[in-house]
């Protein structure tokens, strides 16, 4: 992998953009990588646009400035594309992953994607509703991200996320099961 990968997650307050960054950070750490996971702190309101970030590197990460030129952008809510410039500052060879039923080609024109940015889409909300019973697209998007970027081994990531979810949802085993299924489906269903 290249020295440092920077990731930006776009979501709306309550969709779990922060949790997704934390879970990804944890999974990368389990693989022996150095990580950062941090949210952008503004007014935290349900439904308002929010962002969170990851840095992942095989070497210690000294940078503590914001992520301005992400290699990967993940969009948890397709309606954000209308109000937020989700491709802002993206590297030319970056990867954009959007939770939507639309095809990558359509999203490419919706976002006015330039250059060699690769676009992936997956219906994470649909998957989430099927598997978890609620529209919580953050965990399935984790599966899509691993497929699109190849930065982690999928099985290892799934295993680590399982451990993390087991801690968080001790009393709700059905939530763990649903999330893991959603991650796996999104991994398999993401399109480029």
């Amino acid at each position: 992998m290249k020295n440092l990968i920077e990731i930006r997650w776009h979501g709306r307050g309550g969709q779990g953009a922060k949790t997704a960054a934390l879970l990804l950070g944890d999974a990368a750490l389990a693989k022996g990588l150095y990580i950062q996971a941090f949210p952008e702190y503004g007014p935290e309101r349900m439904g308002a646009p929010v962002a969170s970030f990851n840095r992942i590197s095989p070497k210690p990460i000294l940078l503590h400035s914001g992520v301005t030129n992400p290699d990967v952008v993940v969009v948890l809510d397709p309606t954000l594309i209308e109000s937020v410039n989700v491709t802002e500052g993206m590297n030319e060879n970056g990867i954009l992953i959007v939770n939507t039923e639309r095809a990558p080609k359509e999203v490419k024109s919706d976002c006015g994607v330039k250059g060699d940015i690769k676009v992936f889409t997956v219906d994470a909300s649909g998957i989430s509703k099927d598997c978890i019973g609620k529209d919580i697209p953050n965990t399935p998007m984790l599966g899509a991200l691993v497929k699109a970027t190849g930065i982690l081994d999928f099985k290892e990531m799934l295993e680590d996320t399982k451990h993390k979810l087991e801690k968080k949802f001790k009393s709700k085993p059905e939530v763990i099961e649903g999330n893991l299924k959603a991650i796996e489906r999104a991994f398999n269903e993401v399109k480029s």
Partner: peptide, 12 residues
């Protein structure tokens, strides 16, 4: 520590 940057940022 520095507020948010370190206090709320997760690291290894």
């Amino acid at each position: 520590t520095d507020g948010f940057i370190i206090s709320h940022g997760m690291e290894r």
